[in-house]
Design a protein around this nucleic acid. Structure first.
Length: 585
RNA sequence: GCCCUCGUAGCUCAGUGGAUAGAGCAUCGGCCUCCGGAGCCGUGUGCACAGGUUCGAAUCCUGUCGAGGGCGCCA
């Protein structure tokens, strides 16, 4: 049952009811699912919206529309009802639910709740799907500096970005994910200095990195340099060392250490991200931008967007809404972080039509600067969208966990995954809006209890698998044989229990939810929906036995179809969250 | 001081201008001869405050108060 048919029907009724005056009536008819069952399956506010410009009373118009719809007796529409102050409520016959159920089973995990926005352009008003589905979308997230392990603060951006990419992909978009590696600049030198200091048993410098990993990695590096352990694969390095004098040897060692340290951090990032089932399509190295950085500076100069003051080069960001101008090149001749970042965005704009950046709230000040630079270079800043994720607060036993980068007192992402497990990390951090300053209680998030929605949802999937297994392995041959195989005809009209109908209804909402997540870039709506779907299933499970004595084969077969469809929905939803759909728990 | 985000139930949070503002947890009380009780059902309380726009505002606008983040020739 397509909403389009209903919208069409209302549109025709509207034309008929207002024939004389509706020539320039240019409104979009929207349907919504009323919160209350007594308000029907679908509801439209169209009469309220257009009444004024037609100088009619909303309720009168709605009544007229209802009359026309009832008179025409369209398929699937049981009745239409006008209700104060002017809503038009549609009640559908229950066969639309059975059709919806069949549709889920036909489409299966592969195609249910899948869209192709590139073809579905006509429905939207303010933001056409075709626009959303620009040819290529590049979504950048995490992008932590390669100066140490990822920490708990990176979790939200990581799961947000990855799940969003999954959802956009399911909506037919060409999506690529990217991790920007800041492997240039002072923070890298500070990092290398810190490891070097540890190697030489010296104090870590003032502006260095303090974490315990520095010591461990220093040790690891030292070990890797011992000839006995590296002889097999570093012969070229050895010969180089022997051939050179002391100074160049030091430089060589330094550059070797830098390379090793960056790769070490990257490997560490990849490892923990993989444990969260996150694989980036591209790891983009800042150092690969060096030629582009010069060009960007020249282009900015040509655009008259920069000037010199106090020996530094400034970008006129204040002309584009920033509160002050910003330095691009410091008086010592080195670039600030902003310059390569501009070059990076220019590069990305060449590779994709639409950019999505997921940044932590601590970087939001950069939004206006990057946009300013993009504008100055003649590009459309609207092509870059930012999701600013508010900082997550961690609690343990109700006490906030203070983190301090200075002292290295942080919770590594690895520890978080170990504590909560990947599924719980992903679901928990997807639970709330990026705009919400979410508080995560570690004990609660780790608990395998009712407190923890991820297990509640997974448990629904497990229960379904358990029932299906029971049927397939039933010792009673009559049960096994009475179950209709996938292609057989099953009478779904035996599904009349409120819990059954509610479950189908909830399941049928899923395509809309997936679409909304993609349009609003709001994965938390998906986790919220999955909790609702699981709740509907658990209620059904409690009220309606699928197999057993006293359940007719017809009913068993219909209910089996129902739970298989729900299984499809749960599997899709969990997968979009990056969470497993287990058969057993 | 300026900018961004937020302020909804005791707590953690949903709520694309719509109808009686919802979940979970916590509290209290029910439900296992039954497919996995990691479950189900019931039980009160709330839109920070003040204006405005609108037929209709938790939602949009303005102001006040409060929280977090930012405002560096750091990243």
């Amino acid at each position: 049952m397509s909403q389009l048919l209903l919208i069409d029907a209302i549109g025709n009724a509207l034309k008929e009811a207002t024939s004389a005056k509706s020539d320039d009536l240019n409104v979009e008819i929207l349907l919504e699912r009323p919160a209350l069952a007594e308000h029907g399956d679908w509801s439209s506010n169209i009469a309220l919206v257009v009444a004024k410009q037609l100088s009619l009373k909303p309720l009168d118009l709605a009544s007229q529309l209802a009359e026309i719809l009832n008179r025409d007796r369209l398929a699937h529409i049981e009745r239409a009802e006008a209700v104060a102050p002017g809503f038009l409520n549609l009640f559908l016959t229950s066969d639309w639910l059975y059709e919806a159920l069949e549709g889920v089973l036909q489409k299966g995990v592969k195609n249910f709740a899948r869209h192709d926005f590139r073809k579905e352009g006509e429905l939207e008003k303010d933001k056409p799907k075709k626009d959303i589905a620009a040819q290529k979308t590049l979504i950048e997230f995490v992008s932590a500096n390669p100066t140490g392990p990822l920490h708990a603060g990176h979790a939200k951006g990581a799961v947000l970005g990855d799940s969003l990419a999954r959802v956009l992909e399911r909506c037919g978009l060409n999506v690529k994910t990217e991790f920007y590696v800041n492997d240039l600049g002072v923070q890298i030198e500070n990092y290398v200095n810190s490891i070097e200091a540890k190697i030489n048993n010296e104090e870590i410098p003032e502006d260095g990195y303090q974490g315990v990993y520095i010591e461990q990695w220093a040790e690891e590096f030292s070990k890797s340099q011992e000839p006995s352990k590296t002889a097999s694969n570093t012969t070229s390095d050895k010969s180089d060392d022997v051939a050179n004098d002391e100074t160049s040897k030091t430089l060589k060692d330094r550059s070797k250490l830098r390379k090793w340290a960056i790769e070490k951090a990257l490997a560490d990032h990849k490892e923990v991200l993989t444990s969260l089932d996150i694989e980036f399509d591209n790891w983009f190295s800042e150092s690969s931008l060096e030629p582009a950085i010069d060009k960007t500076l020249k282009d900015l100069k040509q655009s008259n967007a920069i000037y010199e003051k106090d020996g530094a080069i400034w970008l006129k960001t204040s002309e584009y809404g920033d509160d002050k101008d910003r330095v691009l090149v410091k008086s010592d001749g080195t670039a600030t972080y902003l310059l390569p970042d501009i070059a990076y965005h220019i590069d990305k704009l060449k590779r994709a039509d639409r950019l999505i950046n997921i940044w932590g709230a601590d970087h939001h000040g950069y939004v206006s600067r990057v946009k300013a630079a993009i504008s100055a270079l003649g590009q459309n800043p609207e092509r870059i969208e930012f999701i600013i994720s508010q900082l997550v607060r961690l609690e343990s036993d109700g006490q906030e966990i203070k983190i301090s980068k200075r002292t290295g007192d942080i919770i590594e992402l690895r520890d978080l995954v170990e504590m909560l497990k990947s599924d719980a990390v992903r679901f928990t951090f997807l639970l709330h809006s990026p705009d919400s300053a979410q508080t995560v209680d570690l004990e609660k998030a780790a608990a395998k209890s009712m407190d923890n929605p991820v297990y509640y949802v997974q448990y629904a999937h497990t229960r379904i698998c358990s029932i299906l297994e029971k049927v397939e392995t039933a010792p009673d041959a009559t049960i096994r044989n009475s179950v209709t195989k996938d292609n057989g005809a099953v009478d779904l009209t035996t599904l009349i229990h409120p819990a059954e109908l509610e479950l189908i209804r909830k399941l049928s909402e899923m395509p809309d939810i997936v679409e909304a997540v993609a349009k609003e870039l709001a994965p938390h709506r998906l986790t919220g929906y999955l909790i609702e779907l699981a709740k509907s299933f658990h209620s059904f499970y409690h009220d309606c036995q699928v197999v057993g004595e006293g359940i007719s084969p017809e009913l068993t077969n219909a209910r089996l179809k129902l739970i298989k469809a729900v299984q499809i929905g749960l599997a899709i939803g969990l997968n979009l969250c990056g969470v497993s759909a287990p058969k057993k728990m």
